[in-house]
Amino acid sequence: MDTRTIARAVILVAIGVAISPFTSIPIGMAKINPAQHFINVLGAILLGPWWATGIALIIGILRNALGTGTLLAFPGGMIGAFLAGMAYRYTRNIYAGALGEVIGTGLFGAVASALIVAPVLMGKTMALGALIIAFSGSTIVGAMIGIFGLKLLERAGFARLGPERGRPPDDPSL
């Protein structure tokens, strides 16, 4: 059990919950909030798919506990995080990871919501397109900020991207 990984997970969850109010951006009638997606990309690339999924789950729980989130956030966030983690694990490319998040949340997340959540709520399936559009705006912005954040952390010496996992250099625990 690596204490540093666990502490990072704690802090990523806390950021995800804490910055939502700061990153809620109105665009026309709709609102986008890239916070969750940006945390997904970071968690997936720095801590791996399992932790990323757990982080998305816990952010969902806490935001529900605080009354700032809804049940709809669970499937979308978790699938995106897992897919991003897997994409990075097999390609070692942060852009692939970010793409994993966009596809995971925007497409699979939307499909999952439509297949699981939507029929549960309405008894009938609903138009996929609307959901996909609703999910994609935030996730694309979130993934871009995630990439920016990763590069910044690399410069600050907190992450090592590319062939090896996201750990500081010369870390024998690799």
Binding site: R4, A7, R8, F148, G149, L152, L153
Partner: peptide, 23 residues
């Protein structure tokens, strides 16, 4: 939207330092 990096950047770097201290 265009200025989010100015918020997210410093926050992330501090948060990762913070995570090490927490650990």
């Amino acid at each position: 939207l265009f200025h989010l990096p100015a918020l997210v950047g410093p926050l992330l770097v501090q948060a990762f330092k913070f995570a090490d201290e927490l650990a």
